[in-house]
Simulated scan of single mutants.
Amino acid sequence: MNNLITLLEEKNIQLNTDNTHVLSSSGKKTQVVPLIHQRILSIKGPETEKFLQGQLSCDVSAAFSTGSSLGSHCNIKGHMLSLFRLLKAGNDEAWLRMSHDIFDSATANLKKYMMFSKAESSEISDQISGIGLIGPGAQTLIERWFGNSPSETNSIISLSNGLVVRVPGDRFEIWMEDNALVDMLQQLPEEAGIGSTNDWILSEIDAGIPDLRAETQEAFIPQMTNFQVFAGVSFTKGCYTGQEIVTRLQHRGQLKKPMYIAEVSADTPPQPGDAITALNKPNAGRVVIAAQCGENRYRLLAVIVKNVAEQDPLFLHDQAVELKTLPYSLDPKLFLPK
């Protein structure tokens, strides 16, 4: 158990039984969310960039220049085995932060290709802990702690003991040595409070950012989750595992299932992989992730057949699904036959 978990318990912050979700929320406008639902894999060695460039969907060289990027690792059929945020932790080191429940299988899949590279992987979740900052005071808090803040999405501030990254939606993530992070949280200003894991996932949904869970591994090609919007997939960098299928869809195929934001009323939370149905199509789509946004009300990301989503009523467990507006536009050419 790391010191962040110990601190949360001392502050009587409610956690789930396996300490992977913060259940309680301060309700303040500026929230500091312990990212305990994520784990960190370190890839380190003189061939780190080369190895990752040949495996991941994103342009790792560009990510090393900027500081960070969303990315995925696909199988040979182009379906995502893992989805993560890549963080440059040093000239020869990258951190992949990803959902707790896909970590072990994602790590095993990467290691299959690492045998002949001068790079090694190790989990550092016990040494490096993370928090996410959301709300109107997020940037001010970052500047109070570090003197300045990353100016552009995906840019980072490198620290002696970690890093700060700006992520879509005017939000921030801090990943740093566990002891130092706990010391910072001990001095949280009055205007900020500890937020819940649900608060963070809801902010990800509002930004239209997908994530994978165990139930949806190998379910989606990157473009189905709008991954190209975030440069999570590169079509110019050259070969990587699954690249042929992903690139063919972009340049010669037709995307029939994009990702949507939606809301639904339900007595129980929607789960990743749950089926979205239509009157004449029982498998119209699948839930990607969901978060509570009101009493018995949930906001979700879902991959849905486009012509069904835009023409027919949609349902989740017999409850009406209401589509919402994405915070970005999708290239209409993706949906045209080539």
Rank of each mutant, 00 (worst) to 15 (best):
residue 141 L to D: 09
residue 169 G to L: 01
residue 166 R to C: 09
residue 192 A to H: 05
residue 146 F to R: 06
residue 94 A to W: 10
residue 177 E to C: 07
residue 24 S to Y: 13
residue 332 P to V: 12
residue 28 K to M: 11
residue 164 V to M: 01
residue 22 V to R: 12
residue 245 I to G: 00
residue 24 S to N: 13
residue 278 A to S: 15
residue 75 N to W: 12
residue 48 T to L: 07
residue 315 F to K: 10
residue 230 F to H: 06
residue 15 L to R: 09
residue 94 A to N: 14
residue 42 S to I: 12
residue 153 T to Y: 00
residue 304 I to Y: 04
residue 101 D to T: 04
residue 284 A to G: 11
residue 200 W to R: 09
residue 159 L to C: 00
residue 18 D to R: 04
residue 80 M to P: 11
residue 152 E to A: 14
residue 274 D to W: 10
residue 255 L to I: 10
residue 216 T to G: 05
residue 99 S to L: 05
residue 195 G to D: 09
residue 172 F to G: 11
residue 5 I to W: 02
residue 315 F to G: 03
residue 126 D to T: 12
residue 87 L to I: 12
residue 176 M to P: 01
residue 233 V to C: 05
residue 190 E to A: 02
residue 269 P to K: 13
residue 174 I to N: 00
residue 166 R to S: 12
residue 92 D to C: 01
residue 64 F to I: 00
residue 99 S to M: 08
residue 157 I to G: 03
residue 153 T to A: 07
residue 39 R to M: 12
residue 193 G to Y: 08
residue 83 L to H: 15
residue 66 T to R: 13
residue 78 G to P: 06
residue 66 T to H: 05
residue 199 D to H: 02
residue 256 K to D: 10
residue 65 S to V: 14
residue 141 L to I: 02
residue 302 A to D: 10
residue 330 L to T: 12
residue 83 L to N: 04
residue 299 R to I: 01
residue 98 M to E: 01
residue 42 S to M: 14
residue 121 S to P: 11
residue 10 E to D: 04
residue 95 W to A: 05
residue 160 S to K: 15
residue 24 S to P: 13
residue 318 D to V: 03
residue 90 G to L: 03
residue 269 P to A: 14
residue 43 I to M: 14
residue 121 S to R: 07
residue 173 E to K: 09
residue 220 F to P: 06
residue 110 L to K: 04
residue 189 P to R: 01
residue 176 M to C: 13
residue 301 L to K: 10
residue 180 A to D: 14
residue 275 A to Q: 11
residue 25 S to K: 13
residue 223 Q to Y: 00
residue 64 F to K: 13
residue 334 L to Y: 08
residue 173 E to L: 01
residue 215 E to I: 11
residue 127 Q to G: 06
residue 290 A to V: 10
residue 320 A to N: 09
residue 185 L to G: 04
residue 99 S to I: 06
residue 69 S to F: 08
residue 38 Q to F: 08
residue 306 K to R: 15
residue 237 K to Y: 08
residue 302 A to L: 11
residue 275 A to H: 02
residue 106 A to L: 02
residue 329 S to D: 15
